[in-house]
Design a protein around this nucleic acid. Structure first.
Ligand SMILES: [Mn+2]
Ligand SMILES: [Mn+2]
Ligand SMILES: [Zn+2]
Ligand SMILES: [Zn+2]
Lengths: 154, 154
DNA sequence: TTATTAAACAATAAATATTATCATTCGTCA
DNA sequence: TGACGAATGATAATATTTATTGTTTAATAA
C-alpha cells in the first residue's frame, strides 16, 4: 500500500473538515494547521515537535492548544496514537521474546507466549541496513472489565 | 509456554546475582528487593507501582533509586521495557491499520503496510471477554544510522 | 450582517514523570 | 580490615502533560 497515493493532501484536509463537522468540532485556523502539519510531517512526531513546526505558521499558538487538539484528534479518530502504552515506563520481568494483549483503557498488559502465535512473516525486506533485535505483536482492545463498564476506570 | 514453569523464584534470583556479577554491578539489598518485587508482580508495573511495593519492605528507599536501578536492569537485560516507544506521545496521521519499524536508539518510526506482512494468526483464543480493536506488529532494532554509530545519538 | 452563545484560544499554573546532583553509606577486593 | 569506587537517599531540576481562567473566535439564527 502506498499511503501517499491514498491520502492526497487535499483529500486529507477535506476529510478533516468533514470529520470535524461530524464530531461537532469547530473548524478553527489552529486546528487545521495542526492537523495539516502532522499530516505533512509523516514522522510520527511528538507534541513538542509538532508545536515547533506549527509555530512557524502560527507564532502565537500555545503548546497547550497543541496538546488539547492532538487529544481531541485522537479521540475522534483523526489521528492515531503510535503506542497506546505510553505515559510511563512499564517493565517486564520476562526477558524471553513474547507478545502482549493490552487494554487501552486501564492499560493492563497480559502476556502471550511466542508459540501462541503463528510466526510473524514479512513479505518484504526491512529497510536496508536495519538491524532487527526483536519483533513484538500487540493486541489492543478492551479487557473484560473495561468492556463492561461505561467509561474510563483505571 | 508457561513462564512460571521456566523461571522459578529461586532460579530467577540466582540468575539475578549471576548477572549482576557479570555486569560488574554491586549486589545491594535494595537491588535484590527491587528485582524480586518486579519479578513477583508479573504485571508489567510502572516505577511508581514498584516503588510502592518495595517500600513495604524497605521504607527508606527513594524513588530515584528505583528509577536508577530499573534503568540499570534494562541496560543489562535483566528486565525489558514493554514499549521502547514510551517517553512521550507519538501521533500517526495514517489511520489505516499498519505496522512499524522502530529504532530503539533514535526512536525513528517507519511505516510498514498491512500487506507487507503475512496476516498475524493466533493459535489460541484471546482472554475471554477481551474486545479486540487492532493488532500492531513492531519491529525493534537499530536504524542504519544508529547501527553505524558507536552510541546514543538522538 | 449582526447579535448570541458555546467552544476554542493563549497564558499560566499545577500535576505527573523522569533525571541529575551530591553528601553519605555500603559492597568489593586486596 | 581498610581503601576505594559504586550505590543510596535526599533533594533539586527538567520534561511531559493536564487544568484553570479570562479573552477571542466560530457557529447559528434572527
Ligand atoms: Mn510481558
Ligand atoms: Mn505509522
Ligand atoms: Zn481494562
Ligand atoms: Zn536510529
Amino acid at each position: 500500500m502506498e499511503f501517499s497515493a491514498v491520502d492526497s493532501e487535499k483529500f486529507a484536509v477535506q476529510e478533516f473538515r468533514e470529520r470535524c463537522r461530524n464530531a461537532g468540532l469547530a473548524l478553527t485556523h489552529q486546528r487545521e494547521i495542526i492537523f495539516r502539519t502532522v499530516y505533512e510531517m509523516r514522522s510520527h512526531p511528538t507534541p513538542e515537535a509538532i508545536y515547533e513546526r506549527v509555530r512557524e505558521q502560527l507564532p502565537s499558538i500555545s503548546l497547550g492548544t497543541v496538546y488539547k487538539n492532538l487529544k481531541t484528534f485522537l479521540d475522534t479518530g483523526l489521528l492515531r496514537e503510535v503506542s497506546p502504552m505510553h505515559g510511563s515506563l512499564r517493565v517486564d520481568a520476562i526477558t524471553e521474546d513474547h507478545h502482549h494483549v493490552v487494554c487501552t483503557q486501564c492499560r493492563m498488559v497480559v502476556d502471550l507466549g511466542e508459540e501462541e502465535l503463528e510466526p510473524v512473516r514479512l513479505r518484504v525486506q526491512l529497510p536496508d541496513g536495519f538491524v532487527l533485535k526483536r519483533c513484538v505483536v500487540e493486541f489492543y482492545g478492551l479487557c473484560p472489565r473495561c468492556a463492561a463498564k461505561p467509561d474510563k476506570p483505571r
